[in-house]
Write a protein that binds this DNA or RNA. Structure first.
Lengths: 240, 240
DNA sequence: GAGTGGTCTAGACCACATT
DNA sequence: ATGTGGTCTAGACCACTCT
């Protein structure tokens, strides 16, 4: 089941594991690139590609002439950043969350995405899910899955993990997504679903997800209770 | 003034420019890596490092066996993502924005950052600025600049660009930042500053900015009118 | 089979930090 | 002077796509 991986990915994962279990501690330096070269029996460029991954993720900071220092930014990190599914989030945060499927049927593309180039006539599966944590409604996810390439979403996949279904079951390679966060006035139905007070706003995360061959596969509108919403990000200053 | 740059950065910038001016169009393929090797007179690995930058930024998508395709995601992109200052944003979006300096004096670290490991006794310069667009208040920025390393913020720098002052004037290398977005109830003063209606919420972006040597240099609390707030992001699915 | 991107190597020279 | 990360090279082999 586990796909074969490149050395650079294996090394990056191994270092990440060692950070996680305290073998490499925040504030201390990793072994030098030359030492890692010997440790893993690879060339230095391969080591460097692994370290650059960790650098981009914000796990380490490379300092010229000194070394690569382990950062300590993950303690408060709740990674809605990046592309991560609710299921994975649930597992990594141990949130005691449940998912209730409200709709799973044919539907149409919302206006927002039509304005961003998706055809109004595009056929989609409309999947609506209510996420509850400790018995309280916190998120309503409205997914629009493009048909083709998709045909239907099994209830189990909708309940469990859509990403796992697309990647592991169907073999699609999810590659990237655009995401936009705004704050809006909810319609009546949504306000009721999230048990919002009168005039309370809702945080909307709209995203478009693409496969590795640039095929658009998923549109999502995710509505969050404002008091339960938190988005955490790590960013490097771009030089380009 | 312009620092010398590596070939990979020069090449990445050059390709970016050619995309911007339509020489390479969205949906079409870049020249192959071998062709780019000849075009720029470098090795293929150097070309690949440049392309990987563009891939991470979401400007291109690399497809094995086919080539690197130019993506078209920047049309609606309003990059509050990443580390970008209001000044740069203003220039790139031509927003007709103004900045009013409300405070520029000594201050103390807010509780939020104390909870994240900043010492309560840390001395800071407190800089508060009101951002208006077309005459309407849209953002209140509260910056806490660490002393040391900083001593004071000249009014011109506060009015113009804090980043430019730190990087160009003082020679600091801003490297990375953590960022957290939440929605909160504003206090009375803030509600008045942003001219919010009763019970209206405010979007809070809190960030911690670090230099290349991992020195913490800036804490920011940025308060946005909810109806004017938009955060756009591009994310790649992580394999690690 | 030819062309494409993905990975990896062994070596080189550089700039920076420390002793 | 030594060690560190930053850049670059010329070549190799692989997996994938297309004809």
């Amino acid at each position: 089941m586990q796909a074969i991986q490149s050395k650079q990915v294996i090394i990056a994962r191994d270092i990440l594991t060692k950070i996680k279990y305290g073998q490499y501690r925040p504030g201390s330096y990793l072994p030098s690139e030359n030492q890692l070269t010997e440790l893993y029996g690879t060339s230095r460029e391969t080591i460097r590609k692994a370290l650059n991954e960790l650098n981009t993720m914000g796990m380490i900071q490379k300092i010229k002439g000194k070394g690569s220092i382990v950062l300590d930014l993950q303690r408060y990190t709740f990674p809605i950043s990046g592309i991560t599914s609710f299921k994975e989030l649930n597992r990594s945060q141990e949130m005691h969350a449940t998912t209730r499927i409200l709709h799973n049927k044919q539907g149409t593309v919302p206006e927002y995405f039509v304005n961003r180039g998706v055809s109004r006539k595009q056929k989609v599966i409309y999947l609506e899910r209510l996420r509850e944590v400790d018995g309280q409604a916190v998120v309503v996810d409205k997914d629009y899955l493009l048909t083709p390439p998709l045909n239907e979403i099994p209830t189990a996949a909708a309940k469990d993990s859509l990403y796992s279904y697309l990647e592991d079951q169907l073999g699609y390679e999810i590659s990237y997504a655009t995401k936009e966060i705004t704050v809006e006035k909810p319609d009546e139905g949504l306000a009721h679903q999230l048990q919002l007070a009168a005039n309370e706003m809702v945080v909307v995360v709209r995203s478009m997800t693409y496969l590795a061959d640039t095929t658009l596969i998923q549109l999502t509108e995710s509505y969050h209770r404002p008091d339960k919403f938190k988005f955490v990000d790590f960013a490097r200053r771009k030089k380009i």
